[in-house]
């Protein structure tokens, strides 16, 4: 595959997206396995946790929801956690409105359903090169492959989960998966402040019921990031 040549058609752009995301998919397999394992540990069947991956397609939100369900949280708190952990999609979705504007209404529904960190970042990054005609299909190619990969990995994890011994401390794999996402999210001083404050406040409030400390910590952390950015901006002027 000539990676540098522009794909000639939307179809070619779709397959470019599929190819580009193959190595990413390999890296996400363990995350999916962990989600499947977590589902079984909480008492879901392999089919139930796989259906969750089919419909929700949001690893971080699914893992938090499963932890809460395991802790006996009410439906409202599971939904609240899903909302908080997925808030970043508002940002992704608004940034993608222009690169994906040539899609039909129906395809936009599919595009939204398939939105994840990776196709957001790659499509935005390639928009300058691929332009408005090809970028949406490149984006969809990544989304379709990562969705299939996510569903299969979750199912395999669920099949495996019941057989794994407690002594392996596999629950520790959950924060490790978040850590891999956290590191690139911290790219300047304000985002570092948001992470430190958000993380420490969440930890301090760990005793609050149903991980509501996560919600409060996120708000305070966002406030810290905004505050520092504004302060640094004011210093420059």
């Amino acid at each position: 595959m000539a990676v540098n040549a522009l794909p000639p058609t939307p179809q070619a752009a779709f397959w470019r997206g599929v190819l580009v995301s193959l190595p990413i998919a390999v890296g996400i397999v363990p995350f999916g396995l962990v989600t499947g394992i977590a589902g079984v540990k909480v008492g879901l069947s392999a089919v139930e946790v796989t259906v969750m991956s089919v419909l929700v397609f949001a690893g971080a939100a699914q893992l938090v929801a499963l932890q809460l369900m395991g802790a006996g949280a009410s439906i409202f708190f599971v939904w609240l956690a899903t909302l908080v952990v997925n808030l970043r999609y508002i940002m992704y979705s608004s940034a993608l409105a222009r690169p994906l504007e040539t899609l039909s209404g129906r395809m936009k529904i599919l595009a939204a359903f398939l939105m994840v960190d990776q196709n957001f970042a790659l499509a935005l990054n390639q928009y300058g090169v691929l332009g408005p005609r090809l970028t949406p299909w490149f984006y969809l190619g990544i989304g379709v492959l990562l969705w299939l990969n996510w569903v299969v990995a979750t199912y395999l994890g669920a099949l495996l989960g019941a057989r794994l011994p407690e002594a392996w401390a596999l629950d520790f794999a959950v924060p490790l998966c978040f850590l891999v996402l956290l590191v690139p999210a911290v790219h300047d001083r304000p985002s570092l402040a948001a992470a430190l404050v958000g993380g420490l406040v969440s930890t301090a409030l760990i005793g609050l019921p149903y991980r509501s400390g996560l919600f409060i910590g996120a708000l305070v952390g966002i406030g810290a990031g905004v505050w520092l950015e504004n302060r640094m901006g004011a210093g420059r002027e």
């Binding site: 956290l182 948001a194 992470a195 958000g198 420490l200 969440s202 930890t203 910590g217 952390g221 966002i222």
Partner: peptide, 23 residues
């Protein structure tokens, strides 16, 4: 709102990682 949304990933992901490590 756009500015606040930029800090959502760092703040929420840290809120998921820190308690699992620190407590």
């Amino acid at each position: 709102l756009q500015q606040a949304l930029r800090y959502v990933p760092a703040a929420t992901l840290a809120g998921l990682v820190f308690p699992a490590l620190l407590a």
